[in-house]
């Protein structure tokens, strides 16, 4: 995100946030924090800068520290810039039994990064994650909201090529096309 870009949600996102706040009792708007942080990642390049978190705090009328302490607790929130596609490979037992270690190694080689790193072209960030409730179709990985299951090395090549050819702006778990007024 460029330094001088104004930090403000789109009109659609603001309307969605106020609908979400209405799902909780009066005065309990803090409950909307996790959904709103997901929306913030969708609106601001897939990660949460301190300035974005301050903005979220102001939207929910809570202290900034209440946002920081939550954002740092949950694994889905990125507190550093990420590539356009964050590739999350599951590494837990059931996926490991089916070859997740091969998948991670293959991706590291293919993307030229170590786990946690972002490829030189800024396209991919490689993350390993814990069980995503997809153990019966292991090995698997997630990009954005999409589960890619029963992975083979060929499938990975196709998926990554698909990303390179089609993804032009960062994708978050809560996809932009799901932010509707």
């Amino acid at each position: 995100m460029s330094e001088n870009k104004e930090i403000k949600f789109s009109e659609d996102a603001l309307a969605l946030v106020s609908r979400i706040i209405n799902r909780y009792p009066e005065g309990r708007q803090k409950s909307a924090l996790l959904p709103v942080l997901h929306i913030a990642q969708a609106e601001f390049d897939g990660w949460l800068s301190p300035a974005v978190m301050d903005y979220v705090a102001s939207l929910l009328n809570i202290q900034s520290i209440e946002v920081y302490e939550v954002a740092s607790f949950y694994s889905m929130f990125n507190l550093k810039p990420v590539g356009k596609c964050v590739v999350e490979v599951c590494r837990t037992g059931p996926c490991w039994l089916m070859g997740a270690e091969d998948i991670v190694k293959y991706m590291e080689k293919k993307l030229g990064v170590k786990e946690g790193g972002t490829s030189a072209d800024g396209m991919f960030t490689l993350k390993t994650v814990e069980c995503l409730a997809s153990c019966g179709t292991a090995p698997m990985m997630q990009i954005g909201e999409t589960y890619h299951e029963n992975l083979t090395l060929q499938k990975i090549d196709d998926i990554l090529d698909g990303c390179r050819n089609n993804v032009t702006e960062p994708i978050a778990h809560w996809r932009k096309n799901k932010i509707k007024a």
Binding site: R28, S31, L33, L34, L37, E66, E69, V70, M76, C131
Partner: peptide, 29 residues
């Protein structure tokens, strides 16, 4: 009767019922 769906942020511990409640309140789990 109103029914709402709420999403978490990635934390196994939020499956434990009191952590889940904390998380639903917008806190750490």
């Amino acid at each position: 009767f109103d029914l709402n769906v709420h999403c978490g942020g990635g934390a196994y511990i939020c499956g434990e019922e009191t952590a889940l409640i904390e998380s639903l309140e917008g806190k750490r789990g």
